[in-house]
Amino acid sequence: MAKGYGQFCPLAKAAELLCERWTMILVRELTAGSRRFNDLRRGMPLVSPTLLSRRLKQLVDAGVVEHVNDHNDSPAYDLTAAGRELRPMVEFMGAWGHRWVGSRLNEDDLDVSLLMWDIRRGVDATRFPAHRVVVQFEFSDAPQGRRDWWLVSENGETDLCMEDPGHEVDLLVRGDVRSLTEVWLCRTTLAETRRQRGIDVMGDERLGRQLPLWLQGSPLARLGEMGPYH
């Protein structure tokens, strides 16, 4: 850990732990439900495995994170009681960022892999029927190998596939990365983006009408839309 502030102030002591690069993003991922190392990396694609391991160790040593076993008895991580107390801070910072700095999206901020991972865990699967529904996303401007994605919704759960799962596609969403990012961040609506031809939706009309309710937007962005956080 970097040299501290040399202050007894509780805020300074908290900042020594939480304000290092990637630490709060890691806390965000754990708060969102990621547990395994590879899942944490999917939500933090630019962090190196070495640095992620270091940040996890720091949080474990501080009593914010603990080692657990997931349902497959694989090594995983979870927030302790101290870590769970950080949820309001994550939500407050996310809501504040949405209202005051979130609109400043540079090209470097656009990441199709992170976008689809966030959508996968943020959609409201209950808006689709219990039977399997497949939504394919096709991005015109994504790098080769990351232009096509499939979200498979079934029985209230949603899986993300980077390769064709082999099921019939119910809805095809075509567009560019920025347009879908703006929709996901609640900067515009899906209907408005479709009118401006930033996104096209093809397929089952009944499911298409449910799509905006399913693709409801980033949870942190939705908090920001609600106004000052209480």
Rank of each mutant, 00 (worst) to 15 (best):
Q58T: 02
V183L: 04
T31L: 15
V201C: 00
R54W: 12
T189P: 02
G203Q: 00
R194Y: 00
G203C: 00
E182F: 05
R146F: 15
R197Q: 01
L30Q: 03
G6Q: 11
R187F: 09
S153K: 12
H167M: 08
V112H: 01
C161I: 05
L160C: 07
W149R: 10
R41Q: 15
K3C: 09
W214K: 01
S113N: 11
D78G: 12
D108S: 12
R209L: 04
R35T: 04
M89L: 11
G166Y: 12
A142P: 05
D200G: 06
A142L: 12
A130I: 14
V64P: 06
A142G: 06
L207C: 03
Q7F: 14
T193I: 03
H230E: 07
L40R: 06
L18Y: 14
Y229M: 10
G145C: 04
D141R: 00
L215P: 00
R36L: 10
V133N: 01
G97I: 03
G97D: 08
D118Q: 10
D108Y: 11
L110T: 01
D176A: 09
D124K: 08
L86V: 05
R195Y: 00
L26N: 09
L56D: 07
F92A: 05
P165K: 13
L11Y: 07
E225P: 05
A12I: 12
D141T: 02
R178G: 07
A95S: 07
D170M: 06
F92R: 07
R104I: 08
D176V: 08
F92I: 03
V90C: 09
V134T: 07
D204Y: 02
L30S: 09
V133L: 05
D78I: 01
L11R: 12
R121T: 02
R187C: 08
A14E: 10
D124A: 06
E182I: 03
D141H: 03
V101L: 13
P10Q: 10
L18T: 15
V27I: 15
L40T: 05
I25A: 12
P10W: 13
L160W: 09
N69F: 15
R121V: 12
R127E: 06
C186R: 08
C19R: 14
A191Q: 02
L105N: 01
G33S: 04
R209S: 02
W100L: 05
R195V: 03
T31R: 13
G43L: 11
M116H: 04
G33D: 02
E20T: 11
A2D: 11
M116K: 05
V183F: 02
R195Q: 04
F8P: 05
E225N: 10
P228V: 11
S218V: 06
R99Y: 03
K57W: 09
V177A: 03
H131F: 11
A76N: 09
T126Q: 08
V65C: 04
G198Y: 00
V90K: 13
R209T: 03
V183G: 03
E20W: 14
L223T: 04
V27S: 12
I25N: 15
L114P: 01
D170R: 04
R146W: 13
T188Q: 01
